[in-house]
């Protein structure tokens, strides 16, 4: 079984190889990376019978065209980008067989930002610190640490597959254009003006075009700081909302810097981090306060629900 399983005809806006990421290296300046929407990524793998964390394609916004070079099975989850095989509409969240020569095309979706394409057996990439996740700013993982472009050929990772699966009712997440994130106030919350503390949880923001895997710049009511204090570079996490002097918040995403120099106002709860991957430029984004008691209960419930389907899966 030599030879690539698929060839990229058009890379689209940005298509990279992603897996569950390389956690635990933030003290070295290495972000976790991995699929920006971990849930949709895991579900596409489940459908083709892969382990939930098998490397898969992450297609941002759309425009990706692929030719298959081998007979295999694929599934698409996440944002609906009107995928077609040889010009025939292809449903989301279904395992479908493909033949050598078949051409898979993505248009552009209206809801969400990222689609995941899993191929039976997973896809192969360059490993760095235990993960093949592509991290473009430092150029490692995937293929030469960059987004795929026309002519790139991708090989199978030849992982064991348990065969095609169907998704039981209720397991496919219903994406909405408006991304609502449950969050907790964190360490520099007190620096916000009283008015800002009120509307950060009530008024919606919009993601600007300055939105990628590293972060989303949000625009909305100005979030004022009660006092301007200097902050020294300090750790941040995916899901940390920072408030720069402009008052337009920055939400750190899965490839986000490990340190930031702005006050940290909110932290999105772990169970909602997968939604960060579906923030597209111009998406409305809102934050809802989550109590400290609720956050672990929500996480336990969500993990238990999906772990029944995908052993070992964790948000």
């Amino acid at each position: 079984m030599s030879g690539a399983v698929l060839k990229i005809l058009k890379g689209g806006t940005q298509t990279t190889l992603q897996d569950a990421g390389r956690p635990g290296h933030r003290h070295l300046g290495i972000p976790k990376s991995g699929a920006a929407d971990r849930l949709s990524f895991a579900l596409s793998n489940y459908l083709v019978g892969n382990p939930w964390d098998a490397p898969a394609l992450e297609c941002t916004l759309g425009g990706l065209h692929i030719r298959f070079l081998k007979q295999t099975r694929i599934a698409i989850s996440g944002a609906d980008m009107k995928a077609q095989i040889n010009g025939m509409n292809l449903g989301m969240n279904r395992c479908v067989p493909v033949e050598p020569g078949d051409i898979l095309t993505f248009s552009f979706g209206r809801i969400g930002c990222r689609a995941y394409i899993s191929v039976e057996g997973g896809l192969k990439g360059e490993s760095f610190m235990g993960s093949v996740s592509t991290y473009i700013p430092a150029g490692f993982g995937g293929l030469e640490g960059r987004a795929y472009r026309a002519g790139d050929e991708i090989y199978s990772a030849e992982l064991d597959s348990s065969g095609a699966n169907t998704l039981p009712f209720g397991y496919a997440p219903r994406l909405s254009r408006h991304i609502v994130l449950r969050a907790r106030s964190v360490t520099e919350w007190d620096w916000l003006s009283p008015a800002a503390q009120r509307y950060i949880y009530t008024s919606p923001f919009h993601a600007t075009s300055d939105t990628d895997r590293m972060g989303a710049r949000l625009r909305g009511d100005k979030i004022d700081l009660a006092e301007k204090k200097d902050m020294v570079s300090s750790p941040i996490l995916p899901g940390t909302l920072q408030i720069p002097p402009s008052g337009q918040p920055i939400l750190a995403l899965i490839d986000g810097h490990c340190t930031g120099g702005y006050p940290r106002a909110l932290q999105v709860i772990t169970a909602d981090l997968w939604l960060l991957g579906q923030i597209a430029p111009s998406s409305p984004v809102s934050f809802r306060r989550c109590s400290p008691e609720d956050a672990p209960v929500i996480l336990r419930g969500r993990n238990a629900f999906y772990e029944g389907l995908m052993p070992g899966f964790r948000f």
Binding site: L28, P137, S233, C258, G260
Partner: peptide
């Protein structure tokens, strides 16, 4: 004191 904001940046 600190590594980040990008890999290899030494504060």
């Amino acid at each position: 004191c600190l590594m980040g904001f990008i890999p290899g940046f030494a504060f």
